[in-house]
Design a binder for these strands. Structure first.
Lengths: 99, 99
DNA sequence: TTGGCATATCGAGAATAACCGATATATATT
DNA sequence: AATATATATCGGTTATTCTCGATATGCCAA
């Protein structure tokens, strides 16, 4: 875990908002056809709520993924993103013990 | 606590290093004349270890303080900085529960 | 294989952060 | 009052981030 990369990823209002949406996808996004919310939420749905362009949202999701905070699954034309809860647990412990 | 401000403050290698030094001041800094390490460590000592200029270090300490992660005490010509451990506990819990 | 979506990547402009050197402001000493 | 020391602030340069529009790529359907 690259600490600086993780904190940079978290240093943006919209990216924090996306993480918060992904915490309760059924509350924040319309039903997913495929496998409920198990794969996460696709880029287009996140884009639709974000108020930013598709390219910006795609870039933001990539940076969150590079930081290890979310993971992606490609299914057909869609890329689904979901939170990596282990990373948040690890970060919480890191701050508690090491930072 | 402004989350974005906190994460920005943590998004820099040198600032993380400073926080780490302040975690064990007696290990990383020569003895303080005044009140042991209870007031923290003065800017000059942090500057001396940092490899950056005095102005940069002063600015970094201000940003950590604005984020609530450290606090300062002025004693004579010196400003002592020390960690605000409650802020780190709160941040750890925030990440565990809310982010 | 052509066309249509969904997503990713590219190139660019504007805003912010990372530094620096120089200078200002406190405080202390003589 | 004059000088010295510690820290803060200011102005500037360069690097990085934010965000966009345009375009490329990947996958599906006709």
């Amino acid at each position: 875990m690259d600490q600086v990369e993780v904190f940079k990823a978290l240093s943006n209002k919209t990216r924090l908002q996306i993480l918060s949406w992904l915490k309760d996808p059924e509350v924040h996004f319309p039903a997913q056809a495929l496998n409920g919310y198990a794969n996460g939420v696709c880029v287009g749905q996140i884009h639709a709520k974000s108020g930013l362009t598709q390219s910006t949202v795609s870039e933001y999701l990539s940076s969150l993924q590079r930081a290890g905070l979310i993971s992606s699954t490609r299914v057909g034309q869609w890329t689904y993103y979901k939170r990596n809860e282990e990373a948040f647990k690890a970060l919480s412990k890191l701050i508690e013990a090491d930072i």
